[in-house]
Design a protein around this nucleic acid. Sequence first.
DNA 1: TTTTGCAAGTCGCACTTTGCAATTTGTTGT
DNA 2: ACAACAAATTGCAAAGTGCGACTTGCAAAA
Lengths: 230, 230
Amino acid sequence: MRARGLKHMAETEFPRPIVTVDIVLLTLREERLHIALLPRTAEPFAGVAALIGGYVHVEEDSDAEAAVARILKAKAGLSGIFFEQLQTFASVDRDPRDWSVSIAYFALVPQEVLDEAGVALELRPVDAAGELPFDHADIVRAARERLRGKGAYSTIPARLLPDIFTMSELQAIYETVMGERLDQSAFRRKINDLNLLEEVEGEKRQTERARRPTTLYRLKAPLAVFDRRI
Amino acid sequence: MRARGLKHMAETEFPRPIVTVDIVLLTLREERLHIALLPRTAEPFAGVAALIGGYVHVEEDSDAEAAVARILKAKAGLSGIFFEQLQTFASVDRDPRDWSVSIAYFALVPQEVLDEAGVALELRPVDAAGELPFDHADIVRAARERLRGKGAYSTIPARLLPDIFTMSELQAIYETVMGERLDQSAFRRKINDLNLLEEVEGEKRQTERARRPTTLYRLKAPLAVFDRRI
DNA sequence: TTTTGCAAGTCGCACTTTGCAATTTGTTGT
DNA sequence: ACAACAAATTGCAAAGTGCGACTTGCAAAA
């Protein structure tokens, strides 16, 4: 395979760029969105906190999603979480080594799942992430915008919650993702009209202090898209 | 630059995939969306009509958009037209030569501009494009969906029209892009409320047969996004 | 036992946005 | 003058939304 790649590079006379994937892994901590970062293990920027990412391994990965799944498992101990392609960043100056292509993904994980993964990730508030190497700050910004944009029209934000959740938790997630307060009665009406959820019977949950027990729900479908804003 | 690439490939031990850009160039012919294709000049699939595309030239292109602009100019005689990144297709089996990455773009061009370019492009209805090499059928499908999706929430469809157009032409474009009929009075009301257009005074146009002269408009901003569907 | 506090969940109503049908307007050809 | 025809507007019912007030179920405090 290696030889084959080099052979064709010679034939076509075109030097090839570096190809990597980078993952903007978002989760919720204390009501705020955070990105998960890892210290880089190699130059350039060795030791600096950066997006989870790595080279595409052409012998091993059948496609870019396979590379993402492999890297999430190996570097963050996560599998089966939601991710989707965000945007590709490709230019001569984004990496000091060479012309480079980063196929960027964004991924969402409930904080419970991240805790269980038991990997030492650095979490930073997504809106105050500080300095990041390469063009990772741009990538994070693009992810934030995409989540805000698609969040209002889909059940993607629910991927930040465990499978079973309350209506208030769902509303809080949407508020966080969209960065604005939502009216409670309108929110419930819309969610009910859209018929996205099913009640999980019999398992009313009590929270710390005394209050009316909450109905629990789960998503009927893993992903639903609607054509009006929530 | 070439040597630099090879040097680092050796250092990192990772063979690099092929990197290309492919462009889904859409235009309007007889009220229908068409894709513009070009016969391939090299193997594989030499002579077969395919998406406009080519290798990223790392010595020449500062980023992926520069590669797109270069290729559009060289292969289709077009410059200054609208394009935006669509999605990246990256897998071991999409190109028989090697593991390959195609950063796909979609572009919109008014039919008048395409005619003036004077390049022999093959136009096929986007919804009946027939056989296409590689995974180009998937890329076209993704472009069609993206246009339908974003079209309803932005002035992107107007990029299929000349700078100056009538309200009916605009409505017809939206109908074509979204694949559904729209109510005339509701459409006009919405467009006016959104305050996207400015009247071009004094240049009322007459069409073939006798009718009330049409007001002409142009977009105030090259691209506007709204949060309700047209 | 009653009261209080609190979030869950519902209701009513004004206001806005939409979908649809009918009407009016400006032009040319007969 | 009027027929024909697309451009453009109007009126109204139906649907969707924002907002405040109200009811419900529970447990701790009185």
